[in-house]
Computed example of a mutant assay.
Amino acid sequence: MINQVYRLVSPRQFEVAYKDRSLKSEEDFVVIRPTHLSICAADQRYYTGSRGKEALAKKLPMALVHEGIGKVVYDPKGQFKVGTSVVMIPNTPVEKDEVIGENYLRSSKFRSSGYDGLMQDYVFMGRDRIVELPENIDPDVAAFIELMTIATHVLSRFSTRSHKRRQVFGVWGDGNLGYITSLFLKKMYKDSKVYIFGKTGYKLDNFSFVDEVYLIDDIPADLRIDHAFECVGGIGSQYAIDQMIDHLHPEGSISLMGVSEFPVEINTRMVLEKGITLIGSSRSGREDFVQTVNFLRENPEVVDYLGTLVGEVQEVKTISDILTAFEKDLTSSWGKTVMEWKI
């Protein structure tokens, strides 16, 4: 079959590429028709060209988007029924390691980061790279399950790497990831308090489920937390980490989640004096997707809260519609932009 792939060839320019795939030789793959795709900040860095000339020259042309769901259209082994809704896992490992997770293996491939993402007519997925979705889940919310798995993965690493006193959590960052992380913390640690720290008042107004809300320039000097989660990214993470170190009890942990294009400074003197544990996390693997889907199935009220993050929803039938979706996302001040993929 001839599959159409919608690739970014240069900043703000998409073109259609045609790839021939033989269904007879694809027994280990399941063919998925994307239905809802979510635009990520990483996609925007490619789209706007802010990744830099060297990175763009190395990775383009490339189909963008690694957050999305779709329906099964063909499974040669019959494991998945045609029409089954699934979330697609962008991380694609080519080996296994007894110690290193699939998302940390340097050999693993990742869709929309050097390899074609989900902006295709049909996506050929390894059968272990899809997870069946609960019935009747809001597809606009399900579109960014991949982002939720980042929080799931971080909390899994936190649970095994931090001490057991977990009375008060602090989350820095009032964006999408900060919202998801705060919500998951509140649901998973019901007896603990969750404080959110941000710089934008109207964004913080959405965090109705947390125990306390603080503007970063108005934090009480005597406020203390047991563990912190950094969801800021960029150069702003430097200042967030500095505040976390100040307000952490000794031997607390900081889970680093935000991505920065440039090195940031960390006050190692106080990290040493307080015995603080820094926990780095990136991306996620299959187990994180399974856990996240099960979590959403068991906590439907969480899906309702996550609906707050659905910002723009753009129907996509043409390349022009793709451009419109990306441009809308650039000007959106809150939430995720979802593409209803009907091209």
Rank of each mutant, 00 (worst) to 15 (best):
A57G: 14
S282C: 10
K164W: 13
Y202C: 09
Y46R: 03
P93Q: 09
E27W: 09
A55M: 11
K77E: 15
A142L: 04
P34C: 02
K109E: 14
V72D: 09
K199A: 15
Q44W: 14
T318I: 05
E146G: 07
L204S: 01
E27S: 06
A57Q: 14
P11V: 01
D97H: 13
N176G: 10
R7C: 00
L248H: 15
P34M: 01
G170E: 07
P263Q: 01
S107W: 10
A55S: 10
I39E: 01
F326V: 01
K59V: 03
V232N: 11
T200W: 04
S320E: 14
L306E: 04
S25P: 07
D321S: 01
S192T: 06
P11C: 10
M244N: 11
D75W: 01
R297S: 14
A240M: 02
S22M: 06
I39W: 04
R45W: 12
V31M: 10
I241V: 13
E340D: 07
F197A: 03
V310F: 13
D288I: 04
Y179S: 04
L323N: 15
E15V: 00
G252N: 12
S25L: 13
V210C: 12
V293D: 10
S85Y: 07
E15R: 01
A57Y: 02
T292M: 13
T160W: 13
V123Q: 04
L105N: 14
D128Y: 08
W334I: 00
L306C: 06
S208M: 11
L204E: 07
F229P: 11
N136C: 05
I225R: 02
S208A: 11
S85W: 05
L37M: 08
H36A: 03
S85D: 13
R33N: 10
R283W: 08
F326Y: 11
R12Y: 04
S50I: 03
G68Q: 01
E102R: 06
Q13P: 00
L23A: 11
V303Q: 09
T292R: 05
S113A: 12
F207N: 03
